[in-house]
Amino acid sequence: MKVVVNGEERTVDTVCTVANLAADLDVGPKGVAVAVNGEVVGRSAWAGRTLDEGDRVEVLGAMQGG
């Protein structure tokens, strides 16, 4: 199925959790935060949060600023 990750369409397995996606992207969990459709998904909830077709996922990390 297709989801949108950081504004770009991405094909993932039909059953895909946030944890699966993070592993697929090879990021986190340290230093990484995820929101699905605007809702913050805490690190401890990554494994239990499955994605649906068309979900908009933001995967965020540290950048210089401020």
């Binding site: 950081n6 992207l25 090879d26 230093g31 933001e58 995967v59 990390g61 600023g65």
Partner: peptide, 30 residues
């Protein structure tokens, strides 16, 4: 030291965090 939160680029992930951690400073996300 402050740090910002932006869409992750897996290629550069963690590097700023590593620097701040190594410097022993408290993180202040903005």
């Amino acid at each position: 030291a402050t740090v910002a939160l932006r869409r992750i680029d897996p290629a550069t992930q963690g590097s700023i965090l590593d620097v701040l951690t190594a410097a022993g400073v408290r993180l202040l996300p903005n």
